[in-house]
Amino acid sequence: MNIFRLLGDMCHLVAIIILFLKIWRSKSCAGISGKSQVLFALVFTTRYLDLFTSFISVYNTVMKVVFLVLAYATVYLIYLRFRSTYNSESDSFRVEFLLVPVAGLSFLENYAFAPLEILWTFSIYLESVAILPQLFMITKTGEAESITTHYLFFLGLYRALYLANWVWRYHTEGFFDQIAVVSGVVQTIFYCDFFYLYFTKVLRGSGKMTLP
């Protein structure tokens, strides 16, 4: 464990908690892409299948359970509890355009042609594009509540910190996870446009982010 990965995991946890509390307290999921949240729940499900088969550390197990519970709880809030506030017409990204290529690639480019490995690879590739429906929804509606932008900021920052973690681990352990690193770079690049808007718009106190 290194400081970059610990900070990254904390940013990830903060992002997920920010979103969950925003929906829970405002009793509304307006402006939130349910599709992205379903994709994240799928990412955690396919990645954490080893939860019961291999014990790494208490921290690892606890965080996996927390991420899974919060991911499914958020999907529950969006599609069941507060479904009347869900903007399904704005959440129109065709997720099959993500799932099919990601599934195909996970069969082609993986470390081992075994079910758990293919599913883990699928989760890595899927995570790099899972935020696209949310980013697409914001460009479609032309705006995002400031709390949603804070959620996206921490979510984008978490994988950027993981990139630093992988540089550090390569420097100290002499190896790197090519699939995770390439996907992590792609994932972080998708946030660059958002980061620019976040720093120029939201942090200047203009509250809501309105796209030009």
């Binding site: 464990m1 990965r5 995991d9 990830h12 291999s54 790494i56 550390s57 690892n60 965080m63 996996k64 991420f67 470390y111 490995e117 883990w120 993981y162 973690n165 681990r169 390569y170 002499g174 190896f175 790197f176 996870d177 090519q178 699939i179 995770a180």
Partner: peptide, 10 residues
């Protein structure tokens, strides 16, 4: 080569 899966990350 130096590429293999990291197993201890979330």
């Amino acid at each position: 080569c130096h590429r293999r899966k990291v197993k201890d990350e979330l």
